[in-house]
């Protein structure tokens, strides 16, 4: 067993070559599929939460295959906080704009009082805006949960 383990030095730079190469192949497709799930949320199974989880999982995959530092280079922490707050602001802002246009909170059909296209078209656009906001927030919160759990809250390269 010792003889087997001597072939694997943990600090060998080529140790994770297979994993890192296949992650580099897969991650663009994972991100494209996450955006697809968010955008097609009102026609097919999926939506903001599921697409956000897939998008966040692509960054988590980079963090697992390389290390925490690489993951934080690709998606810096300031951007992460800004994106979580941006998603919440989009969600609540859509609801408040609908309320200001004369309807209830998140009552998209009321927006046709301001810009005169049909209420059905406004409902489709409003649901899309809310799904995009949920997707942004879920992506960044998933990633920051992974960072905090894997480095015990220190964000100093735990893995």
């Amino acid at each position: 067993m010792k003889r087997l383990q001597e072939h694997f030095e943990v600090h060998d730079p080529n140790l994770n070559l297979i994993i890192q190469t296949s992650i580099r192949i897969l991650v663009p497709f994972v991100q494209l599929f996450g955006l697809y799930v968010i955008v097609h949320g009102h026609y097919s199974p999926g939506g903001g939460f599921q697409g956000g989880v897939i998008l966040g999982a692509s960054f988590i995959l980079m963090g697992v295959g390389y290390d925490l530092k690489k993951s934080m280079e690709l998606f810096p922490e300031a951007w992460n906080i800004a994106m979580a707050n941006l998603g919440t602001t989009i969600f609540v802002g859509t609801g408040l704009v609908c309320a200001a246009a004369g309807g209830l909170f998140l009552d998209y059909g009321a927006l046709s009082n301001w810009i005169g296209i049909e209420p059905a078209a406004w409902r489709s656009l409003g649901i899309f805006a809310v799904e995009a906001g949920v997707g942004f927030t879920v992506t960044s919160v998933m990633l920051s949960l992974f960072w905090d759990l894997s480095s015990r809250g220190e964000l100093d390269g735990g893995l």
């Binding site: 067993m1 383990q5 694997f8 994993i19 992650i23 897969l26």
Partner: peptide, 21 residues
């Protein structure tokens, strides 16, 4: 692509932490 990579990662991790063959 992903299934053999996952198998490879699991077996490599088991070898590093010393699971006896």
């Amino acid at each position: 692509i992903s299934s053999p990579t996952a198998t490879h990662a699991i077996s490599q991790a088991a070898l590093i932490i010393g699971v006896e063959p």
